[in-house]
Nucleic acid binder design. Structure first.
Lengths: 142, 142
DNA sequence: CAATAATATTTATCGTGCGATATTAATATG
DNA sequence: CATATTAATATCGCACGATAAATATTATTG
C-alpha cells in the first residue's frame, strides 16, 4: 500500500507547483499593465481585504518571511501603490497602506477573478472544495 | 452573485501559492541534504517516473520553458545526478538520464512522501480529490 | 533546394525567497 | 534602575527561478 500513498502525494506537490505557475501566467498580461508581479499582486490582495496591515501580518497570511516582503513592498511603494508607515504605538511595526492608486487597482480584481473563473472550468462547488482542501493542507503543514 | 464568485476565486490563487511554498518548505531540510532545490527535485521526480525524457517533455510536464530548464538541469548534471545526451535520431533533442547517484535518490522519495502524507493531515480520498481538481484546473488553463 | 518548424542553448534581466546579521524597541528580570 | 531577553523589522548578500528575446542547429515540408 505504500506505493499507492507515494504516487498520490508526489503528484500533489507536482500539481500544486504547476497550478501555481499556470495561474500566475494567466494573470501576467493583466498584471504587467499595472507594472506589478504576481507575488506583488497577492500582497495587494491582502491589503484590499484589510488595509494597513503590518509586514508581519502580511507575511503570516502569505507564508513569507519579512526578508522577502521588505524588498517586494518597497517595489510596490516605488510604484506608488502603497505607503510604509511606522506605527506610533509600537515603532517596531511598519504598517502598509494603500494609496489612492493602489485602491483603484482593486477594481481590476473583478476582471481578473472572472478571467480565472472562466478559464479554470471548475464549478463554484469545485472551487469551494479545492479551496478548502488547500487551506486544510497548508494549515497542517504550518 | 458576482461577489461570491470573486471571493472564491481570489482565495484559490492565494491558497495555491501558499500551499506550494509550504510544501517546498517541508521538503527543504531533506532536499538540502542532497544539495538540490525543490524545482530540481520535481525534475528528478519526472525522471524517476520515466527516465531519459527530453528537455521538452519535462517542460511540458512541469509547465516550464526549456530556457528555464536548461540551466536547472545543468546544475543537476554538475551535481552528478543526471547526464545530458543529444539524441542520435534527432539531434535537436537532448535526452536527460539519471546517473546511479540520481537513481539512488529515488529511495528517499518514500521518506519524503510519508513526510508529506503525515504532515498534510488529509485522507487518501482527499488527496485524490485535491489532485484531480488541480489537474483539471491546470489543464483548462493551459 | 528553399522555406518553415521544432528544439535546445545563450544572453540578459528581474524578482523571489531565504539565511545571517544587525538594529531597534518593548518587556522581563535581578 | 540597569541589564538581559525577546520580538519585530531592516539590511545585506546570494543563489536560483522564470521569462523574453535572440541565436544556432537540425528536421520537415512544400
Amino acid at each position: 500500500m505504500t506505493t499507492c500513498t507515494i504516487t498520490l502525494d508526489d503528484m500533489i506537490c507536482f500539481d500544486v507547483y504547476a497550478a501555481n505557475l499556470a495561474i500566475g501566467r494567466l494573470y501576467k498580461p493583466l498584471l504587467t499593465q499595472f507594472g506589478v508581479t504576481y507575488p506583488q499582486y497577492l500582497v495587494l490582495m491582502s491589503l484590499w481585504e484589510k488595509d494597513g496591515q503590518t509586514v508581519g501580518e502580511i507575511g503570516a497570511l502569505l507564508g513569507l518571511e519579512s526578508s522577502t516582503l521588505t524588498p517586494l513592498i518597497k517595489r510596490l511603494a516605488t510604484a506608488g501603490l502603497v505607503t510604509r508607515l511606522r506605527a506610533v504605538e509600537d515603532e517596531r511595526r511598519v504598517h502598509i497602506s494603500l494609496t489612492d492608486k493602489g485602491r483603484d487597482m482593486a477594481n481590476s480584481r473583478d476582471q481578473m477573478a472572472e478571467c480565472l473563473v472562466g478559464a479554470a472550468g471548475l464549478t463554484l462547488q469545485e472551487f469551494g472544495q479545492l479551496r478548502e482542501l488547500l487551506r486544510k493542507l497548508r494549515s497542517n503543514l504550518a
